[in-house]
Design a protein around this nucleic acid. Structure first.
Lengths: 247, 247
DNA sequence: GATAATATTTGACCAATGGTCAAAATGTGA
DNA sequence: TCACATTTTGACCATTGGTCAAATATTATC
């Protein structure tokens, strides 16, 4: 060992790499089978370690699943951050975050399903304290990015002041987004609603909330197609793939 | 046995009564502990029957939980139906359904949590065919009641035609409602958003979507406080308890 | 390179629990 | 009262999340 001050030793690097490997495989299993339909033995086989080794990384199956969710949530916050730097009107920037949300949903398709499990108290309390904290932290990042933008929009007068608090408006945006993603994944609802592309349904609902808030310029008063082109070009080039599609 | 033509025999009545007893206790356990933190043995003890008897009613734990969800969903559809008969403008009627939704959430607090479990494929496929069908049926009832109202509102010109399809609008309303209920139950979000009364947050978000859809009369153009008084008096007298509260 | 000391990995094992079924208990009719 | 049918039961099984002593690998020392 030649390095005098290795901040991270080789062992630690290997440990982290293995943890990522486990999380990646667990994510795949979650996407393919949900929570119940696979067991730790199978996961151990997939990553070519034994069950005991898994438990050196995660205190329980729930702890592992929370780690998967938090890894995704960190990605989400990163994408929100990137989108929030988009240059434009406040409503154009919230629009960019809306795009980020869809990009994320496509890149981590298991996320919303896993996040719903976490709502169960018994699930949450089986995870370790550190991981619960890490998850809250990433969740708070997402919240803050949106809320800051809403606060700014109100300061600029883009959202009428006095009607709703910034926190209420932020809550509305998040609630409609989560609800749209969850419902859009439901085959039964998709058929009933005639939805071909769930992401466009999410985007539409976000627009409805913004219009409802009176966030200027309203959908009818601005050429948002031009905004979308810029968002595509500057922030999410991959979004073109899902953007041009049926309702 | 004196009755000549009993459509339902005494045995069958007893069987149904016991099924309801089991469902009621299972609902309580779900509310108190979620899904994992109780077992069939404990439930059997609570209803004072043995495990084997439970399995004469339900093919699996998942099947039982689906039955709980469907029983709640039936209540939900019933309340929607009641609310949809409210006499008034189309937007006043969707408002009455919004009230129904909150009344329901208070009366079946376990519902949204259980409903989220059903999204997991492995869960759904462990339940019996009949119960899956019954659940879809009640879900479709809820959908239809809202969608009919939206169609009618568009026919009346209360919602501008041509912009969104009735199905899209229905989807928006349901998505925002589900999302708001789920997020409103999350302590972390409640604190961040400064929400005292989750039901009012749900109602607000529904109003935002309606305004966003341009559903006339808009919030600012009508005395909806008067509408609310009528809804309270005519349809949901109990709603007064949760309506008068902080944001 | 040999050996001792330390760290890591393993899989047999345990406890909990969803689900089954032969036997016991209960109900019914003659 | 007895024979037959139906219902209820709980011992039993298989699966699986989680543990830990033993085996294996790594590192340090001479």
């Amino acid at each position: 060992m030649s390095d005098v001050l290795p901040v991270i030793t080789r062992k630690e690097r290997e440990f982290q790499a293995r943890e990522e490997l486990i999380i990646t495989h667990a994510r795949r299993l979650l996407l393919e089978k949900g929570f119940q339909a696979w067991n730790m033995e199978q996961l151990a086989e997939a990553v070519e370690y034994s069950k005991g080794t898994l438990y050196q990384h995660f205190s329980s199956k729930e702890d592992l699943v929370l780690a998967v969710a938090t890894a995704s949530l960190r990605q989400r916050a990163d994408m929100f951050e990137k989108a929030s730097h988009f240059q434009g009107l406040s409503r154009e920037r919230i629009r960019a975050i809306g795009f980020a949300c869809c990009e994320f949903a496509l890149s981590c398709p298991e996320y919303f399903h896993v996040e719903m499990m976490l709502k169960s108290a018994s699930f949450w309390e089986k995870a370790s304290e550190e991981r619960r904290h890490a998850h809250s932290f990433q969740g708070a990042r997402c919240w803050r990015i949106i809320n800051n933008l809403v606060v700014e929009a109100m300061a600029l007068g883009d959202i009428p002041r006095g009607q709703y608090s910034p926190e209420q408006a932020t809550f509305s945006l998040i609630a409609v987004t989560v609800g749209s993603h969850l419902m859009g994944r439901e085959p039964q609802f998709r058929v009933q609603a005639g939805i071909q592309n769930p992401m466009l349904a999410v985007r539409l609902n976000q627009d409805l909330i913004c219009d409802g808030l009176g966030w200027k310029p309203l959908l009818k008063d601005h050429d948002y197609a031009a905004t979308d082109s810029r968002i595509l070009a500057e922030v999410f080039p991959n979004a073109a793939a899902w953007l041009n599609a049926d309702p």
